[in-house]
Design a protein around this nucleic acid. Structure first.
Ligand SMILES: [Mn+2]
Ligand SMILES: [Mn+2]
Ligand SMILES: [Mn+2]
Ligand SMILES: [Mn+2]
Lengths: 219, 219
DNA sequence: AAATTAATTTAGATAAGTCTAAAAATAAAT
DNA sequence: ATTTATTTTTAGACTTATCTAAATTAATTT
């Protein structure tokens, strides 16, 4: 099946919205994710339903079919492997690679992404800690532990970022927090749910907005 | 200036046709190169003329403007650097990379191609022996010596392929001829302009069609 | 339960890039 | 110098993906 970049982007959007939101994704939600108008989304999902890539009943939102899901995961796989390439091989910072990966994920080739994966020595996670689906589409999701849920006095390792937006990544850079950073929760402030955290090098105050966006593994 | 992939492809086609053909490229020639109808080409070159990327007078064919040429060379640069990546890093054969490079050459980024160039350690030629333009757009063309013009008894090195089509590249593979191969002309057949050539490993007969397509440097 | 609000879909329009068929201009042949 | 053939351009239509505005359906409030 030969899909346009646009169709691929819709599938990818529906895929990730299915995780962050309900199982049946609404038209408006997609339109916000993809920065189009809701009416355009309706057109497209009808087209995708024609191609059996989504389940769609009028006014009921959409969900991916088996094949639609398979394609979406393939695109996610491509996106994340290209991000690894850009960071590990071309020395980009983790906040610089998303836009390029958005383009590279649409390169069509039967073999390219598997060759790239081998060249990168089969990475398991992208530069933002997101898991990379394997060739068959299997993907191991994070165990949803956020920094905000770590008890006072306990330590943890940063293993992923929930919101990988540029400003947030740059902010983490400034705080010298990266994947693998070890954080110890010193105290929590009930007033605004901020916490005092000890890194390898410093003691910093972290707002709830931030601690809710950091995936960690408790130690 | 933000160009579509299609516009970029037209500029690239005009660029290479300017070399292989006359200075003013005809509509039909472009339409054959780009596999569209002549009427579509007319539409597009009028659009490109609007944007000052080509010089165009009705019925007189087109040529690239300074800025149009600059963009065309940038795309050639990207194409060839990606081909080097695919062959040198991902272990593709030289006959497998063109279609992927056709897509990769359109990836938009201010920095990507320069980073890639550095990662590849500043290659001067692509896998088919074609020169890679530098960051400023300077490009050293082959000194047009073809194998067909080498005198009997003389030796030469293969430095490039004129027609880099898949079948031709595969054929060269079979003959065990590659860039850097040293060929000695044993004899020439006046009847069909074929020649008997000695490689490092064997003695082979080479048709004129082939010897006219191999760039060499005389030794 | 009816009225109001919000979300979704339809209808009609637009832009990019392509096509076919017809018209106009150029080139080649008589 | 005409006629004929070829090339190029125009005109009108189609497809994909988008938009605005209007109509419809669903959800919320009163
Ligand atoms: Mn990304
Ligand atoms: Mn990522
Ligand atoms: Mn190529
Ligand atoms: Mn090449």
């Amino acid at each position: 099946m030969m899909l346009s970049q646009t169709e691929e982007n819709y599938l990818k959007a529906i895929y990730s919205l299915t995780y962050t939101n309900s199982n049946n994704v609404s038209t408006t939600l997609i339109s916000e994710a993809i920065k189009t108008k809701a009416s355009s989304v309706t057109d497209m999902i009808q087209k995708l339903a024609e191609k059996d890539l989504v389940h769609y009943k009028k006014y009921q939102g959409v969900s991916l079919t088996k094949i639609g899901q398979k394609i979406a995961v393939e695109i996610v796989r491509k996106h994340r492997l290209w991000e690894v390439f850009l960071v590990n091989k071309l020395n980009y910072n983790w906040d610089e690679v998303h836009q390029m990966a958005e383009q590279l994920e649409h390169i069509k080739s039967e073999t390219l992404i598997d060759k790239l994966e081998a060249f990168l020595e089969f990475p398991t996670h992208d530069p933002h800690g997101d898991p990379i689906p394997d060739k068959e589409g299997n993907i191991k999701h994070h165990n949803n532990t956020m920094l905000s849920s770590v008890e006072t006095g306990k330590s943890c390792v940063v293993i992923g970022i929930k919101d990988s937006s540029d400003p947030f990544l740059k902010f983490l850079d400034k705080l010298q927090i990266q994947l693998g950073s070890i954080l110890k929760v010193i105290s929590k402030e009930p007033f605004d749910n901020s916490m005092l955290v000890e890194t390898e090098t410093a003691s910093i105050s972290i707002s709830n907005q931030i601690s809710k966006n950091l995936f960690v593994k408790k130690l």
